[in-house]
Computed example of a mutant assay.
Amino acid sequence: MNTTTLRKDSTGTAAPRPATPRPGPPGGAGGVRAAAGHVLLYAGLLVLAAAILLPFAWMLTSSLKRDNEVFTVPIQWIPQEFQWENFTEIWTTIPLLTYLSNSLFLSVTITALQVLTGSFAAYGFAKMRFPGRDVLFFGYIATIAVPWQAYMVPQYIMMEKLGLVNTHLSLILLQAFGAFGVFLMRQFYLTIPDEISEAARLDGLSEYGIWARIVLPLSKPALASLALLTFVNTWNDYMGPFIYLTDNRLWTVQIGLRQFVGMYDARYAMIMTGSVLSVLPILVVFLLGQRYFVQGIATSGIK
Score class of each variant (00 low, 15 high):
residue 49 A to G: 05
residue 53 L to P: 13
residue 59 M to W: 12
residue 48 L to D: 05
residue 41 L to M: 06
residue 54 L to Y: 15
residue 57 A to Y: 14
residue 48 L to G: 10
residue 53 L to D: 04
residue 53 L to G: 09
residue 61 T to E: 00
residue 52 I to Q: 10
residue 46 L to D: 07
residue 42 Y to R: 07
residue 60 L to Q: 12
residue 38 H to F: 14
residue 47 V to M: 11
residue 63 S to D: 01
residue 57 A to H: 06
residue 59 M to T: 05
residue 39 V to R: 15
residue 55 P to V: 02
residue 44 G to A: 09
residue 48 L to T: 03
residue 56 F to W: 02
residue 61 T to Q: 01
residue 51 A to L: 10
residue 35 A to N: 12
residue 55 P to Y: 00
residue 51 A to E: 03
residue 50 A to R: 14
residue 57 A to F: 14
residue 51 A to S: 12
residue 44 G to D: 04
residue 51 A to R: 06
residue 52 I to Y: 15
residue 60 L to A: 15
residue 48 L to V: 06
residue 55 P to E: 05
residue 64 L to M: 06
residue 52 I to K: 14
residue 34 A to Y: 09
residue 53 L to T: 13
residue 37 G to R: 01
residue 42 Y to A: 05
residue 34 A to E: 06
residue 43 A to F: 13
residue 41 L to A: 08
residue 42 Y to S: 07
residue 47 V to Y: 14
residue 63 S to C: 08
residue 36 A to M: 05
residue 44 G to P: 09
residue 40 L to I: 04
residue 56 F to M: 03
residue 44 G to M: 06
residue 52 I to C: 13
residue 63 S to A: 00
residue 48 L to H: 08
residue 53 L to Q: 07
residue 48 L to I: 08
residue 43 A to P: 10
residue 48 L to W: 13
residue 39 V to G: 09
residue 34 A to T: 06
residue 63 S to P: 05
residue 35 A to P: 11
residue 34 A to F: 11
residue 61 T to D: 00
residue 43 A to M: 07
residue 49 A to T: 09
residue 50 A to H: 11
residue 43 A to L: 07
residue 50 A to P: 15
residue 45 L to T: 05
residue 36 A to C: 01
residue 53 L to W: 14
residue 36 A to D: 03
residue 44 G to T: 02
residue 62 S to I: 06
